[in-house]
Every structure is written in structure tokens, then in C-alpha cells.
Computed example of a mutant assay.
Amino acid sequence: MTAHKERPDIILETRDVCRLFGDKAAWFGEKRVVRAVDGVSLGIRRGETLAVVGESGCGKSTLARLLVRLLRPTSGAVIYEGRDIAALSDSEMRGLRRDLQFVFQDPFSSLNPRMTVGALIEEPLRVHGLGNRAERRRRVAQLLERVGLSPEFAGRYPHEFSGGQRQRIGIARALASGPKVVIGDEPVSALDVSIQAQVINLLEDLKEEFHLTLILIAHDLAVIRHMSDRVAVMYLGEIVELAETDDLYARPLHPYTQALMRAIPVASPHVPAMQAGLKGDVPSPLAPPPGCRFHTRCPLATSLCAERKPALAAVGEGRLVACHHWREAAEAAPELRREPPRSPAAERRFALYQERSEQQERLRTAPAAGSQSQRGEPQNA
């Protein structure tokens, strides 16, 4: 396994990660390759909430699965606390599974219908050898209560619950092993709008309580507006813009990000709906366009865009964009330029992130305490 230099502020990182899917076409045995994730480099800070957004089929879910090695990358590295998890053996990876947990999009198919809720939540504890039987059951009851369900529900089966309740069960199961990183793959997209807000608020509260690093996959920018610290925008397997949430919403720089912003519905009859301004359909991932992959739909595209691929380059402090004409794009969208003050929730998130970063730095330079309680493990009676 290749050693990687650990950055104390980064807990999880991808370096030029690619994931290809190939099959045999029906005609003449032609080989077709889908570049689901293509050259993504991304660092996730400790204690932050990072949202990854984009249209369906852009590679968000594939990237999420690469981050926890539910899929292996075709090339590139996925670094978790200095270790390339893509290069670990299955037995080595099992030791890290408790640190990296996943909340799936479908709250029904992700739960085994033959297992009770208590058994589903207890399974991670049993697999990782955490606590005895009584301690595990006590932990299950605590987690059910924490996600807003009665501990008495432990003996019931998933089909006896609503979609929102099943997603709460999935969240409790993800928290059971005391993870450091939780990835939610569109965790509220299958829920009613009224339930979405409840689950989002629950995730935000749990993140602060359990000191989690949270990665949210979404296609709706409105969903992650008030709970993410940074936003990465994906298009056809590539990241086209990365920025702090307030900066992105105040002044989106990439034409594709601007189109996503215009697609957010406004709940007011007095505000006219904005047109996305895109032309054509999403290109096939089997044959992505040359140069900038967005140029076939971009209103600002020139011959340069079709000939040369733009690099994801820094255009300000903590801000990256992959566009040859981002300055023109910013000037061409005055209706999207807003300079709102940082919300109280964002200020609180930023203060918490700063505090956690300082704590992590102190822990890194101090002797390890080796306390199990910091990882959320069951305690001895």
C-alpha cells in the first residue's frame, strides 16, 4: 500500500479518481465505456458538511460509493486519514467500515425485510464486536429514541413503517458503529416534502451531536442550502464548480451552476419563474463531447470550449471553477448576483468547524487518549 501524507484538516480525499463501466455492444462486439466519474480531485474537511449536486446521471452516487469503497476506482486514489482505501485488502477495509457509513436513497430496499428494526441497527455493532448483547440492545434503544422513534419499535419489521420512519431507521443504523464520516445518497429525495425538512433537521442535529463529517448527495440545490458548508457541482462525471455555500448562492460562476440556480422554484406568485437558459439534451456518457463537456448546452460556448478542456482552477479564496468564460458568465447573470449576509445557521456551522479543527489539531499533537467513548461505542455497565 502506498503511503500518503496526511493533512490534519482533511479527513477524506479523492485524487484524480476515475470510475469506468464497460460492456459489449450488440453490434460487432464493440466495446463501450461509460466514464461515470472522470478525474475528480476533492478534499473533505473534518467536521464540515459537503454537498455534491448535479443532474441525474452526472456521477454523484458513483462518487459517493467510491468514497466508502462500495465501488473500487478504475484509477486514482481515495485517501482516508492518510491511507488509500482503494488499495486495502478486504480484511483491512473491514476495520475502517465502522468509520465510513452510508445512508441510502431508498429507505425500503436498503433495509432487510426479514430482519427486525432492532436486529438491523444492532448488526453493525455485532459485526465489529462492539459491546455484549445487553449493551448492544441498550445502544439500539438509545439510537431509536435519538432519531425520534420509540424503543418499542425494535421488534417490528421495516414494512410496518412509513418512508420517513424507515429513513430514520437507516440513519440510526449508520450511526450505530460510531462513524466519523456519514454519506447520504439523496437521503430525502424519496420522501414527501413535509418529511424532507424533518429528516434534514435531524441530520444536522446529529452531525453536531456526534461530531460527524457529513457528505450529502443531492440534485436539488434548495434542499442543501441551509445545512451545507460547501457545495461541489458535478456535470457528466466532472466537478465544474466548488465553493463555500454562501458564496455559491450569492454569485454562481459556472453557466451550469447558474442553470441549476434558475431551476429552483420560488414559492411566491409575485416572483416570475426564471428560465434555465440551456439548449439541447444531456450528452450521452458513452460519448461525452470534446473539450468542455458542457459546451453543447452552454449559451456562452465558443470554439475554444469545443477544442480545449478547462481545468478546475482557483478563482478566489477557497473557490474553484472549470470554465473558460466564467467572468463573462458572472456578468451575464445579474439576476443571480446576491450578496446576502451569512445566515445565523452558517455562522454557527463555521464556528463549530473552527472549534473542531482546533480540537483535531490539539489531539493530533497530544498523546492519544484511546477513549472508546469518543467513537460512540457502547459503554460497560
Rank of each mutant, 00 (worst) to 15 (best):
R262I: 04
V271R: 15
P252Y: 00
A330E: 15
A250M: 02
C323L: 10
G184V: 11
K60A: 12
A222M: 15
D247Y: 04
H226T: 13
D99W: 10
P344L: 08
A381Y: 12
G76Q: 02
A26N: 08
A36G: 01
Y235V: 02
V188C: 06
L63K: 09
A381D: 13
G43N: 09
G318N: 03
A369P: 00
G164P: 06
A36L: 01
G47A: 09
E123I: 01
E186I: 09
P285Q: 07
M115V: 07
R35V: 07
A306T: 01
L100M: 15
P269I: 11
C292G: 04
N380K: 15
G155L: 00
F350V: 07
D38S: 10
A232V: 15
T257F: 13
V321K: 01
S228D: 15
E244M: 12
A351W: 13
L363A: 05
T257W: 14
L71S: 13
P290R: 04
Q359E: 02
A197D: 11
A86W: 09
Y256H: 08
L203V: 14
V199T: 05
R251I: 02
V68M: 06
V78N: 06
H270S: 12
R136L: 02
P334Q: 09
A77R: 12
L70F: 05
A381N: 11
E152C: 08
T245R: 13
R375W: 07
Y157W: 14
R375D: 07
T116F: 06
V321S: 02
F153H: 02
E317P: 06
R348W: 05
I224R: 10
S177E: 14
V34W: 01
A36P: 00
G237W: 03
D220K: 15
G29M: 01
Y80R: 05
S162V: 11
V223N: 01
R19N: 10
R349F: 09
E55P: 07
K31A: 00
L12G: 12
E186D: 08
H4L: 08
E238P: 00
A218M: 10
A119Y: 00
A86G: 15
V188L: 03
T257P: 11
R69Q: 14
R319L: 04
R297M: 02
C58G: 00
C298M: 01
A218I: 08
F350M: 08
E13Y: 05
L260E: 14
Q198V: 14
M1G: 11
F102T: 11
R156Q: 12
A287Y: 01
D229E: 12
R156I: 13
Y80D: 06
S177V: 11
G54C: 11
Q360K: 07
Q196R: 05
Y353L: 14
K5N: 06
D23N: 00
R15Y: 05
E307F: 00
S357T: 15
R19Q: 15
R173V: 11
V37Y: 12
D84W: 13
G47C: 13
R308I: 01
N112I: 09
G237D: 00
A273H: 07
S284H: 00
V53R: 08
H254R: 03
R45T: 13
K24L: 00
P299R: 07
D192T: 13
R364W: 10
V17R: 05
F350Y: 09
H324I: 03
G54R: 15
